[in-house]
Amino acid sequence: MKEIKPFEWLIHALVIVLGLLLLNYPAFDLTFGVFNSGDGSLLWPSVLGTAFNLILFYGIAFYLIPITLKRGTGIFSIRLIVLFSFVSTVEVLIDSTFYRSSGNSIDSGIWSELVVMVLFTHVLVVIVAFAYRFSKDWFANERTKRKINEHQLRSELDVLKSQINPHFLFNALNNLYSMSLQAGDEKTAEGISVLSEMMRYVFDKTGEDKVALQEEVQYISDYIYLQQLRFNKQVKVQFDHPETVSSFYIAPMLLIPFVENAFKYGVSNHAKTTIDIRIAFEEGHFVFEVKNQKAERTETIPSSGVGLSNVKKRLNLIYNDKHSLSVNESDDLFRVRLVILNSL
């Protein structure tokens, strides 16, 4: 019974009490087998009958099924039949006692009606017990799977972070930055400074559940800046985004793989290409779109290592049914549209 939380106990109790009140409300004048709520004869049979139903329900859901799952199905059927027969027999005998206490005699027809009433009720209880137990286990397994997936994704990000010693990296970047300034190469110095900030963001923020949208936008802007330094005028990038959105937070490093993918497949060695990136809020929903022309390349563009399949897993874990992701591809165009519902 430790599997039932206090809130669940409260729900169970409310359902039982409400059911008994409705069943015995005189104005409804309900007839259940040989008993009637209008004359009050249904009260005690329903109360004790509920007690037997609970013994059957909890006995199956929290004793027979768990034991069967642990030890095998060997004698499950025998145990179920014994429990069902015992509870049903005792309840029939008690109901017959209540019926006689009102001055009634019992013939074969009354016995049949009592037995049918009890068996019908208990069969329903057995069905409900199985449905409750297996649905409870299914939801528990889903929660466990989700936690395992979340742990796996966090471990993957931690591995990416641990591949480089952050202190060594930042010291090296600072030295390169100082050397570039001394040599008068301000463009290289600026690139090193931007890269340093990007790496600091990766090490500092990937362990957090959510970050401000402005921080993620800045990271994307820095990434675009470095890529444009590399490709010069070979690629044109249009990045549209809100200037300030203080109330919206997003999972870190969630958007950058889509941008990396656009540069990976949308930059040509021979022709100028265009990449369009848009962040907006439409009717309270967060919208992120990336559109790039498809191009052939002979060299590989390094990425963060967080691929699109990993992003899809994170989206399903973090936003579940509160997001939609569409990927459309034609002969010369690749487009991604991510919508996070009810963002504002």
Rank of each mutant, 00 (worst) to 15 (best):
L119Y: 00
T121I: 03
H122Y: 05
L124M: 15
V125C: 05
I127V: 14
V128A: 09
F130N: 09
A131N: 15
R133Q: 10
S135V: 07
K136Q: 12
W138R: 08
A140R: 03
R143L: 10
R143S: 14
R146L: 06
K147P: 08
N149S: 14
D158M: 00
K161V: 08
S162F: 00
I164T: 13
N165G: 07
L169W: 00
L169G: 05
F170Y: 01
A172G: 10
N174Q: 09
N174F: 07
N175Q: 12
M179E: 14
L181Q: 02
A183M: 04
E186C: 10
E186D: 14
K187D: 14
E190I: 00
S193R: 00
S193M: 03
R200D: 09
V202F: 10
D204P: 04
D209M: 05
K210D: 14
V211L: 00
L213T: 02
E215D: 14
E215T: 01
V217D: 08
S221C: 06
S221D: 10
S221Y: 02
Y223K: 06
Y223Q: 06
I224Q: 06
L229M: 11
L229A: 07
K233E: 15
K233I: 06
V235F: 02
K236W: 09
D240C: 11
H241C: 10
S246D: 15
F248Y: 07
M253C: 13
I256R: 02
F258R: 00
F258V: 04
E260I: 00
